[in-house]
C-alpha cells in the first residue's frame, strides 16, 4: 500500500479499477453458475451410465467365469490370441463455455461371430458370449471416458473460477478499496495541513501587521 502515490490522479485510477474488478467478478459468477448447470446435466447422465457399466462388468465377469469353468481356461486364453484388431478411436474436441472437452468418435467394438478371428466350429458359445460381454463393456468404457473427461475438465474450470471470484472478492477488491481510502485520507490530510499552514501564515502576517501598526502608533505618541 506504500507504493501508491497519494495523488488525485491515482485515486481516479483506483476507482475505475474497482469498478472493473467488480464487473469482472459478476461476470465470472455468472459463468460459474452456467458451468455448474452444465456439470449437473452431464453428471446425471454419467452416474446412470456408471451404474450400467458396473452391471455390464459383473455380467462380463460371470460369462468369463462360466467359459473358464466349463471350457478349459487354456481354451479361453487360446481363443483370446485369435484377436486381430486394435480399437481405432478418433478424438476431436469441442467447447463448452470456453472449456475444451474431448469428443470420441469410434466404431462400435461389438462384432458378430464371424469377425472375432477364431473359427466358429471349434469355439464354444460360452467363450463367444464372454467375448461379446467384454466388447459391450469396452464400448461403455470408451463412452464413459468421454463424459468423465468432460466432467473433470468442467469441474476444474469451476474450481478455477471459484478461486478467481474469491480472489477478486476477498483480496483484490478490498485491497483496491483500501488503497483508494488511503489515497483519499492522504489527500484530505494534506488539504487540512495546507489549510492549517495557510492559517498559520495568515496569523503570522496578521501579527506582523499588528506589530507594525503598534510601532507606528508608538512613534507618533512618543
Amino acid at each position: 500500500m506504500e507504493q501508491v502515490h497519494p495523488t488525485r490522479m491515482e485515486l481516479i485510477k483506483k476507482r475505475s479499477q474497482i469498478v472493473l474488478a467488480e464487473q469482472g467478478r459478476d461476470l465470472l459468477k455468472e459463468k460459474m453458475e452456467a458451468l455448474i448447470q452444465e456439470f449437473f446435466k452431464i453428471m446425471v447422465n454419467f452416474s446412470e451410465s456408471r451404474e450400467g457399466l458396473e452391471q455390464l462388468a459383473i455380467e462380463a465377469d460371470l460369462a468369463l467365469l462360466v467359459a473358464e469353468a466349463v471350457d478349459d481356461p487354456i481354451a479361453v486364453k487360446s481363443a483370446s490370441y485369435a484377436t486381430k484388431r486394435q480399437i481405432m478411436v478418433d478424438i476431436s474436441g469441442k467447447n463448452i463455455m470456453g472449456v475444451p472437452v474431448p469428443v470420441i468418435q469410434k466404431k462400435s467394438v461389438a462384432l458378430n461371430v464371424m469377425q472375432r478371428g477364431y473359427g466358429l466350429i471349434g469355439t464354444s458359445s460360452r467363450i463367444n458370449e464372454a467375448a461379446e460381454k467384454f466388447e459391450a463393456e469396452m464400448d461403455m468404457i470408451i463412452r464413459l471416458a468421454e463424459t468423465e473427461t468432460t466432467l473433470r475438465r468442467i469441474g476444474n474450470e469451476i474450481q478455477m473460477n471459484r478461486r478467481r471470484v474469491n480472489a477478486l472478492d476477498q483480496i483484490i477488491i478490498p485491497e483496491l478499496k483500501e488503497q483508494a481510502k488511503y489515497i483519499r485520507f492522504s489527500i484530505e490530510e494534506r488539504e487540512r495541513e495546507d489549510l492549517f499552514r495557510l492559517k498559520k501564515v495568515k496569523k503570522l502576517i496578521e501579527r506582523k501587521k499588528v506589530k507594525k501598526k503598534m510601532a507606528q502608533a508608538g512613534g507618533k505618541s512618543g
Partner: peptide
C-alpha cells in the same frame, strides 16, 4: 490353433507354451 493364433500376433513363446 493356439500356436497359429499366438504366432500371428507374436505372443511370447513361453506364454503360448503355457496354453
Amino acid at each position: 490353433k493356439t500356436i497359429l493364433r499366438g504366432k500371428r500376433i507374436k505372443v511370447p513363446t513361453m506364454q503360448i507354451r503355457e496354453n
